[in-house]
Design a protein around this nucleic acid. Sequence first.
RNA 1: GGGGGCGUGGCGAAAUGGUAUACGCAAGCGACUUAAAAUCGCUCGACUUCGGUCAUACGGGUUCAAGUCCCGUCGCCCCCACCA
Length: 860
Amino acid sequence: MNPRSEERYNVRETEAKWQAIWEERQCFHARDDDPRPKYYVLEMFPYPSGRIHMGHVRNYTLGDVVARYKRARGFAVLHPMGWDAFGLPAENAAIERGVHPAIWTRENIAAMRTQLKSMGLSYDWSRELATCEPAYYRHEQKMFLDFLKAGLVYRKESWVNWDPVEHTVLANEQVIDGRGWRSGALVEKRLLNQWFLKITAFAEDLLKGLESLDRWPDRVRLMQENWIGRSEGLRLFFDLVDRDDRLEVYTTRPDTLFGASFCAIAANHPLAGELAKTNPDLTAFIGVCNRMGTSEAALETAEKKGFATGLTARNPLVEGQELPVYVANFVLMDYGTGAIFGCPAHDQRDLDFARKYGLPVTPVVAAKDVDPASLVIGTEAYVEDGVMINSGVLNGLPVADAKARVIDLMEDRGVGQRAINYRLRDWGVSRQRYWGCPIPIIHCPQCGVVPVPAEDLPVILPEDVTFDKPGNPLDHHPTWKHVACPQCGKAARRETDTFDTFFESSWYFARFCSPTETERGFTRAAADRWMPVDQYIGGIEHAVLHLLYSRFFTRALKVCGYLSVEEPFAGLLTQGMICHETYKDADGHWLLPTDVDKRADGSAIEIDGGRPVVLGRSEKMSKSKKNVIDPAGIIATFGADTARLFMLSDSPPERDLDWTDSGIDGAFRYVNRLWRMVVDPAVNLPAPGTACPADFGPTAKKARSQTHKTVALVGEDLDRFHFNKAVARIRELSNVLAEIPATDDGAGWALREGLETLARLIGPMMPHLAEELWSALGQTTLLVDSGWPEADPALLVEDSVTLAVQVNGKLKGTVSLAKDVDTETAQAAALALPGVAALLDGKPPRKVIVVPNRIVNVVV
RNA sequence: GGGGGCGUGGCGAAAUGGUAUACGCAAGCGACUUAAAAUCGCUCGACUUCGGUCAUACGGGUUCAAGUCCCGUCGCCCCCACCA
């Protein structure tokens, strides 16, 4: 036995060795003056929570394969990594464990950086950034002030989710079933002064821009389209009877104006507030509306409720008609004008409301062939298309024409105008939090809102704060908020709110272009050099928020002269989640996979105590369900390459991936198999660089053809991110190479060619193993520097092909023919097949279809 | 309620409208071994009278040909949601 085969592939030593060599030689350093075409690949940067999880492993493996592949293909690759380091968990750690958020965050970054490095990721670490450092966030304070100057920022009182226990605003996604996600307290609506970024100014542009993003998943584009929610309709005024005032309403159904039977305004509508001043019952009703739950269940069961204000409004289209005005719980202040007219016959909510309060229900649209007289609206509104009835001048018009006619009429009379409305709302960026970027504003009793002068930037977050009281520590700080007004010099107060953490992640991709720039975040030259990101990779959960904010932010930066592009991410890959089986004990408590012993029959018991375990379905790995596997243990045991291979091989990247122990075992077996194939080859290999022999035996010849075909196919697969297929093809090649008999002419040469190719093809996926194999094969260069193999076109063409032969579309056999034979030859060969001849029974076929090199279909 | 996606062996999955089930996992059998692990080899959709026949959730349709395109049904998943 060859003594070397007794050695085992030493994962730890080998991976550490190559990581050190790559780092020492700065293999992944991106140079701004590199003349080759650029390729910017970026993965969504992590929040430094303390440890990496499997989702990170998948995300960064995918990105690293793309980066290493593009590098091999001759691109100047920018592949950076950083930390989305502001955020709530750091404050929670401070409250719960007494650690300062800055210390907690920096320690987590250090720990996670070590973990990421153990994965062998090809980052340019010289560009690393952390958003919690003043060197980073100072620039976004400047950007905010530039946006303010450009009219893209404003301050407004708005209704927010207020957690009365934590004394802070919550984002919508932090409100679960109407309660604060941490405190569990019922969330209230509060009117608060907040800073807003005018994302709605770009609504149309953000919508249009989606069309150009042809390398984004359709799903994400559609989600953003729905989120922006463009609608076309009419804004019109209803005069209020006996009041010198009118009510502005937005509708997408101006055609149904003849069927109107009431108007309704939101509880937070200014008119409701005014009326409530003299009406305690209305005040109470508004209070009820503001406390109303916003959970799915609450909305489903919530009754339509209204409060008759006693006011009436004149229907601008129907002479003499007066409609009662209600305050209604189902009208939203922040969509349209916060006021509607109700047409019960053709809107389900309006119908529910009308039935409850005994309001008239007049159908004004009927399906084309329905007799209007027989039309009865019961408990279901008619929302389909049709023709106008009961509508005076509109009668007989199709809905679309009636809409246009009413809009024209209202515009002519000056009581309304065509309007486009968006569901998208301006981005409120104020948070009553400590661990975030301070908003660079000073409030002066004399001068009002005063921006911090550029020369006083950055406004640095003070570190000497306490977390013993609820609310924002910046508010409790004894000195920090007290400053002199930059304009009048008198005592003034700093803004103590900080930015939403989506602010930092909205421009970090540009910062990576010139991470040490001190003047304005990044130089225009560097941004022009590297932007846009050619391939962005991350979770689908950011389909709207982060990706939409970043698209807006990039446009705003362009307006302010920072960069030239509008779209930050030219290509987007959204990866699926990592799932794992779930386990519960008899009492219904979740169990960790490490506490469970799976048995051969599929059942499972608790390792400690042996009680039976209830197996649950595979679900997204989460701490709450305890179905998590720590990547650190996997990497320590099996190595980074095994973990990476597993992440790539079982499912396409956009699909969810089931973690299985047997899957990781299989990947590890393959890593070792490849290693053995090289260090202990079945056939003696010629020296590297030996000239190609003139003749090859049949199997060696086939193997060579397979080698070159695999090069071509794996390249296509990687171009399309079909990593699972690339892995399958590589495995196929190794299966073929293992079959070459030593007796074949040129066997050793064909095997060396195959193994060298294999090493290069696995380079992006299993980089440590690839380097190890490359060097074991006697190569003296680094594999990362050796480019991508080229397929020999001569070896890609087959001289013979197998054609399927069908009769009436059913497979009856195959024939082997020379490639590209003429139709007649193929047809004759097919008809000569015994099975085919028998079915024909001597008669000529009705028709024969020949698809060259593929199939012959005989129709009888 | 609105929008979108998916349904292929025991499992993860392949398949420009053209030989369905590549590649892997699990399982079974065998070799090596005192034994186990590791490794290597073979079998592996269903039924079969061994000629074949039937299988891509279900029912229709288009086509010489459908997992793939169209219509409908069922099931699962995701996103948004009193958006006027």
